[in-house]
Amino acid sequence: MYIKARNFRCRSGEIDLIARDGRYLVFVEVKYRHTSGSGGASAAVNYKKQKMISRASLFYLVRYGYPEDTPCRFDVVAIDGQNIQWIKNAFDYCG
């Protein structure tokens, strides 16, 4: 996997990391919580956040001329204190 963009911003929102993993274009949300209380870092990527990331990813695809059938994946890197969890394919596109 290699990083294509960091902190991509548009009117629709922000994507922390955009990477290429084989044939997949991967949109990564990174969440940090000092402790795992209140559900932890992964719980912070709720439906509203997923929808914002989805809209921003669509903008990225159109902006940089990716074909409509580009395989994409949405990952979450959840950091709770010292515990790091990488959740591949954490959610589907929310259109």
Rank of each mutant, 00 (worst) to 15 (best):
K4I: 15
K4C: 13
K4D: 14
A5D: 15
R6H: 11
R6L: 15
N7H: 11
N7P: 03
F8C: 07
C10Y: 09
C10M: 08
R11N: 15
R11M: 13
R11S: 15
S12E: 15
G13D: 03
G13P: 04
E14D: 08
E14I: 00
I15W: 06
D16L: 01
L17H: 06
L17N: 02
I18P: 03
I18Y: 03
R20N: 08
D21V: 07
D21N: 11
D21E: 14
D21C: 10
D21K: 08
G22M: 07
R23T: 13
Y24L: 14
Y24Q: 12
L25Q: 03
L25W: 07
V26Y: 00
V26T: 11
F27N: 00
V28C: 06
V28D: 00
V30Y: 00
V30K: 00
Y32A: 01
Y32Q: 01
T35M: 01
T35D: 09
S36G: 07
S36V: 00
S36I: 00
S36W: 09
S36L: 04
G37S: 13
G37C: 09
G37L: 14
S38V: 04
S38A: 12
G39C: 01
G40V: 01
G40S: 00
G40I: 00
S42H: 09
S42T: 03
S42L: 12
S42I: 09
A43C: 01
A43Q: 05
A44F: 07
A44N: 07
Y47K: 13
Y47I: 11
K48L: 09
K48V: 11
K49M: 09
K49Y: 10
K51Y: 12
K51M: 12
K51I: 06
M52I: 13
M52E: 15
S54C: 05
S54A: 04
S54K: 02
S54G: 03
R55C: 08
S57Y: 01
S57I: 00
S57C: 07
S57P: 01
L58H: 11
L58V: 09
F59K: 13
L61T: 06
L61S: 00
V62I: 15
R63P: 03
R63E: 15
R63F: 10
G65A: 09
G65Q: 09
G65C: 07
Y66K: 07
E68Y: 14
E68D: 14
E68T: 14
D69Y: 10
D69V: 04
T70I: 12
T70Y: 03
T70W: 03
P71G: 06
P71N: 08
P71K: 08
C72S: 10
C72T: 14
R73W: 07
R73M: 10
R73D: 06
F74V: 07
F74S: 05
F74Y: 15
D75H: 05
D75I: 10
V76L: 08
V76I: 14
V76P: 04
A78K: 05
A78M: 06
A78W: 02
A78D: 05
I79D: 03
I79L: 04
G81L: 02
Q82F: 10
N83Q: 12
N83W: 06
I84F: 05
I84A: 04
I84L: 11
Q85G: 02
I87Q: 11
I87E: 10
K88E: 13
K88I: 06
N89S: 14
N89T: 04
N89F: 07
N89Q: 13
A90T: 07
A90S: 10
A90D: 11
A90H: 11
A90K: 05
